[in-house]
């Protein structure tokens, strides 16, 4: 598999968000997600809500779910840790199927992980009892749908860890990528 084929495209993430009928994407930007932000902003069917701090995303998502729409939270793992009380108090205690797509900052697939943000991500999710799925490249994208299905079935928050170690969200120009997709 070439490096390019192993990428995780922002358009793939967007397709999965749309496939799961998401109405509201609630997010705080990080350095890896700008192209996804641009793609979402261009989509008229998705309302993009930017917050000031990650813990707001889960509380807003809780309100969106109660109001009958489908949200997804998009934050980095550092922000997930900042959000503990929102995840606990609304997501877990109130049985709300909040799907969180989480940038797995610092993650490496060879096991040496200098970044504590990465080292503590999965132990934190395990401590909270939150199921999660790892997505590394486009071939894993169906796990995003699986996350939505799991959240609906369990009525609990579920995480998708985006472990693209090369930060592929920003590696390619969106127009170039659309051209490649169009040309097969």
């Amino acid at each position: 598999m070439t490096e390019q084929q192993a990428m995780l495209s922002p358009l793939t993430i967007l397709d999965k968000i749309k496939e799961n009928n998401v109405t509201h994407v609630i997010y705080l930007p990080d350095s890896e997600t700008n192209h996804l932000f641009i793609a979402m902003e261009e989509d008229p069917n998705i309302e993009v809500i930017t917050v000031g701090r990650e813990a707001e995303t889960m509380a807003i998502a809780a309100g969106v779910i109660v109001g009958g729409k489908i949200p997804v939270c998009l934050v980095q793992n550092t922000g997930m840790m900042e959000s503990g009380d929102s995840i606990r108090g609304l997501g877990l205690d109130c049985n709300l199927p909040i799907v969180m797509i989480i940038g797995y900052r610092g993650w490496t697939r060879w096991g040496i992980t200098p970044d504590s943000a990465a080292r503590l991500t999965e132990p934190t999710l395990n401590a909270w009892g939150i199921q999660y799925y790892l997505v590394e490249h486009d071939g894993d994208a169906d796990r995003i749908t699986l996350a939505f299905q799991t959240a609906a079935a369990t009525q609990k928050p579920v995480a998708v860890l985006v472990g693209d170690e090369y930060h592929g969200f920003n590696r390619m120009n969106l127009d170039e990528e659309r051209k490649i997709i169009k040309e097969g």
Partner: peptide
Amino acid sequence: NFAMGLALAQ
């Protein structure tokens, strides 16, 4: 935040 999400959805 919860109220805002609810307001947007309704």
